[in-house]
Each structure stands twice: as structure tokens, then as C-alpha cells.
């Protein structure tokens, strides 16, 4: 705990160096990224909280083993997200199953507004249905949407996380938005609680 108090003023890079000297400092990095990564894992894989925590532990072990590979020219957050994403993808491929995308309400609103999704009649969207749609699109599109609109990363950071050129990231985001819109329009999303004569149709 003493170490945890110590680490508030340290940068991620400094904590990496300190962890290599004393593994106790790794707790600082875990504390810094635990919540973010747990959310990220759930968002891209759709696994439940317990499974996500198991994945997260393995991710941190992997991060620890690879600390010497960390290059200061890269943002530590991009590096740790990259490891997480790769691990989740490999696990995802192994198990070939997933649950549903996870979002909390306030993030949902940001997501919807960033994606320029508006209902025809008012700004309310059926979150449950749209989450299912998000879950239906390919993981390569879902992960860019999550990184851009939910994790708030810019193109350069997403490029570092996915190890793809910035231009490709831009293309992926546009395609992902298009896919999401297509999926919504194909399904003609209607709010289940809406008056049947006053259907709320998501227009994007």
C-alpha cells in the first residue's frame, strides 16, 4: 500500500522502470489500468465480469513478462491496450463465443452522439437493441468503434494499439460506422416501448 501512495506522481514510463527493479510497483500500474482494461475487455469481447477479470489477470501477467519490450516512444496506455486487445482476440478465437457488448449509460449517450445516431422522432434510442446490433458486427469493426467512441482514443493511438496505419484506422472506422448503420437499417430498429402508431426509428 505504501508503494501505491508513492506512485501517484510517477509517470507510466517511470513505473515501468521501477517495476523492473521492484515488482511491488507493478501494483501501481495495475491500479491505474485495471478499471479501464476491464471495461475494454468486456466491450470488445462481451464476456461477463468474472471472465473479464480472469482475462485481465492473464493480461497483467503478460504485460509484466513483456515489460522490457516496452518502448518509451509509444504511450504506455497504447502498449497495454495493444497487449490486452491481442490477448482478448486470441482467446476469442479459441473459444469462438462471446456475450454482449457492455456499456454504462453515460458512455452510451456519448457513443450515440459521436456516431451521429438520431431517432426520427426524438433522441431516445433503444439501447438494448442497438447493443445487440453492435454485437452482431465483426470484431474488427467493433473494436475500432469501442476504441474511438468509448475509450476516446485518437487515430494515432488506435493505430498504435491495433498496429495498423493511421489511414487504415480511418477507413476501418468509416466502414464500421457504415456497417452499424446498415445493420440498424436492415433491422429497422423500433423502440419496443414506443406507441405502435408512433414508431421510433433510428435514423443514421
Amino acid at each position: 500500500m505504501g508503494i501505491l501512495l508513492d506512485c501517484q506522481t510517477k509517470t507510466d514510463g517511470e513505473l515501468v522502470i521501477l517495476t523492473l527493479e521492484n515488482s511491488g510497483y507493478f501494483a501501481c500500474l495495475i491500479e491505474r489500468y485495471e478499471e479501464k482494461l476491464l471495461r475494454f475487455i468486456r466491450r470488445i469481447s462481451g464476456v461477463n465480469i468474472q471472465d473479464a477479470e480472469d482475462v485481465l489477470q492473464e493480461v497483467f501477467i503478460k504485460v509484466y513478462k513483456n515489460l522490457n519490450a516496452y518502448d518509451n516512444n509509444l504511450k504506455f496506455s497504447s502498449w497495454i491496450y495493444r497487449i490486452t486487445r491481442n490477448y482478448v482476440i486470441s482467446e476469442f478465437r479459441k473459444k469462438k463465443s462471446r456475450g454482449e457488448v457492455f456499456l454504462v449509460d453515460e458512455e452510451w449517450n456519448i457513443f450515440v452522439s459521436d456516431l451521429n445516431i438520431e431517432t426520427e422522432l426524438d433522441k431516445e434510442i433503444d439501447k438494448e437493441i442497438l447493443l445487440k446490433v453492435l454485437d452482431k458486427i465483426d470484431i474488427k469493426y467493433r473494436e475500432v468503434l469501442v476504441l474511438k467512441f468509448l475509450e476516446g482514443y485518437n487515430y494515432k493511438e488506435i493505430s498504435d494499439i491495433l498496429k495498423k496505419p493511421v489511414g487504415t484506422v480511418g477507413t476501418l472506422i468509416n466502414r464500421a460506422k457504415r456497417k452499424l448503420r446498415q445493420e440498424i437499417s436492415v433491422r429497422g430498429l423500433i423502440h419496443p416501448l414506443a406507441d405502435k402508431t408512433k414508431n421510433k426509428i433510428i435514423k443514421i
Partner: peptide, 15 residues
């Protein structure tokens, strides 16, 4: 939760 995960991870590293 933080302590739990960091504890588990650090224990595993040590063990």
C-alpha cells in the same frame, strides 16, 4: 477490486 486483482497478480508472479 484493485487490491484483489493486484494482489492476485503479484501473488502469482511471486509464486
Amino acid at each position: 477490486m484493485t487490491e484483489e486483482i493486484s494482489k492476485k497478480v503479484l501473488e502469482k508472479i511471486k509464486k
